[in-house]
Amino acid sequence: MSTSTTIRNSRRSASEDPKRRGLHPRRLAGRTILHVALAACAILMALPFLWMLLSSFKPLTEIFAQPPALFPLEWTTEGYEKAFAGADFVRGFWNSTYIAVTVTAVSLLTSSMAAYAFARIEFRGSKPLFMVFLATMMVPAQLTIIPLYIIMGWLGWVDTHAALIVPAALFNAFGVFLMRQYVKGIPKELEEAAELDGASRFRIFTTLILPLLRTPLTALGIFTFLGQWNNFFGPLIFLNSDANFTLPLLVNQFKGQYGADWTALMAATTLAAAPLLIMFGIAQRQIVEGIALSGSKS
């Protein structure tokens, strides 16, 4: 059972004896109803995004129109001009991106290293230590954030990106757990052969294990990146100055200052939501696999 098969859903059910289906008018009617219902619900799910996007191009005067219209009568980029004037979204985009990329890259490395140790090296205390990692997944972030805030104060890291990057990059219990499952799935014979050739553990890990983990690492990477990019709680607690803000914080701040300026707020929201939505449109399969992965090995 795995994530990669999730996606092939469609193909399998489509190839499921098409002849029989074609013969029965009742089945045809059933399928039509199914598609109408699913399409209607899918459009309902997408409507808030359409509303966001189209409203961001409306002039402010149109928002009180009754009944509200989905499409602007007059298209304008006023909202975007105000959004860019009101907050530094380019900087926010950069902050969000480099924080998420750094955390993802480092935590993929550190969690697969730890996973390799748990899966392949025998040492005393391996099992209890692994149980500790598992248990921490139950701890709500709100419990540790108070002491972390105080600790960051001592370190002088409050209002710096280090407060967000370092903890997330160095501690990822879920990543360790997940990668351990996959390392365990790699046949041991490969490593034994490499060791006979005199390869060190470090070499085996970097040249043999890591390349074999490419698929789960990609999925975990997407999952981690999404969590970091969209993180609101951590940045809200740790960051104070505008220049350090990530996109979610900028939107929240913009909402506070321009709350009544709905079209500008929708422009700001579109700016914050668009990068990932576009990415999702391009790489739907990989991203869905990344999401599905979080439950696949439990």
Partner: peptide, 14 residues
């Protein structure tokens, strides 16, 4: 799935 990849702040603003 589009709402899943969107930040909760953007979702709340909409």
């Amino acid at each position: 799935v589009a709402p899943v990849v969107t930040s909760s702040v953007a979702v709340a603003a909409i």
